[in-house]
Amino acid sequence: MNALPATKPRWPLRLARRAVSPALFDFWAGRVNPLWTLEQPLARVVSRTAESRDAVTLVLCPNGHWTGMRAGQHVNLGVTIGGRRLIRSYSPTPLDDGTLAITVKAITGGVVSTYLAREAALGTVVTLDTAFGEMTVPADHEALLLLAAGSGITPMRALLRDLAARGMPTVVDLYYWARQRDEFCFVDELMSLAAAHPRLRVHFLATREGDAPDARVDALAFDGVTDLDQRRVLACGPGGFVEAARARFQGKVAGFDAEAFSLPTLAVIDDAGEVEVHLARSGRTLTLSRGQSLLEGLEAQGVKPTHGCRMGICNTCACARTSGTTRHTLTGDRSSEPSSQVRLCVSAPATDLILDL
Score class of each variant (00 low, 15 high):
5 P>K: 08
6 A>E: 07
11 W>N: 04
11 W>R: 11
13 L>W: 03
19 A>L: 15
20 V>I: 12
20 V>Q: 02
25 F>P: 07
25 F>D: 05
27 F>Y: 11
28 W>S: 06
30 G>Q: 04
32 V>D: 00
38 L>Q: 08
40 Q>N: 06
42 L>E: 01
44 R>K: 14
51 E>P: 15
53 R>P: 07
55 A>H: 04
55 A>E: 02
63 N>W: 08
63 N>L: 11
68 G>D: 08
70 R>T: 13
71 A>E: 02
79 V>G: 03
80 T>C: 13
82 G>D: 09
85 R>Q: 07
87 I>D: 04
87 I>Y: 13
89 S>E: 00
90 Y>W: 10
91 S>L: 10
91 S>G: 06
95 L>H: 12
97 D>C: 15
99 T>D: 00
100 L>I: 05
105 K>C: 02
106 A>V: 13
106 A>P: 15
108 T>Q: 15
114 T>G: 10
120 A>S: 09
121 A>Y: 08
123 G>T: 08
123 G>D: 01
125 V>E: 06
125 V>T: 07
131 A>Y: 13
136 T>P: 11
137 V>Q: 11
138 P>M: 12
138 P>G: 01
141 H>T: 09
141 H>V: 14
141 H>P: 04
142 E>L: 13
144 L>S: 06
148 A>Y: 10
149 A>E: 00
150 G>V: 06
152 G>M: 09
162 D>H: 15
164 A>G: 09
164 A>Q: 10
165 A>M: 14
167 G>Y: 12
168 M>A: 02
169 P>K: 09
171 V>N: 08
172 V>M: 12
174 L>S: 11
176 Y>L: 13
178 A>R: 06
182 D>Y: 02
186 F>G: 05
191 M>I: 13
191 M>Y: 07
195 A>D: 13
197 H>G: 04
199 R>D: 05
200 L>V: 14
203 H>G: 01
204 F>D: 02
205 L>V: 01
205 L>Y: 05
207 T>C: 08
215 A>E: 05
215 A>V: 10
227 D>N: 15
230 Q>F: 01
230 Q>D: 02
235 A>S: 12
237 G>T: 08
237 G>K: 02
241 F>A: 00
241 F>E: 00
247 A>Q: 09
252 K>L: 05
262 S>Y: 05
271 D>A: 15
273 G>I: 13
277 V>D: 00
278 H>T: 05
279 L>R: 00
282 S>K: 11
284 R>M: 10
288 L>T: 04
288 L>I: 12
289 S>A: 11
290 R>N: 02
290 R>C: 14
294 L>W: 04
296 E>R: 15
298 L>H: 06
299 E>C: 14
299 E>F: 10
307 H>T: 12
312 G>D: 01
320 A>H: 03
325 T>S: 04
325 T>D: 00
331 T>Q: 03
332 G>R: 11
335 S>E: 06
340 S>K: 14
348 A>L: 07
350 A>N: 12
351 T>S: 09
353 L>G: 00
354 I>C: 08
357 L>R: 07
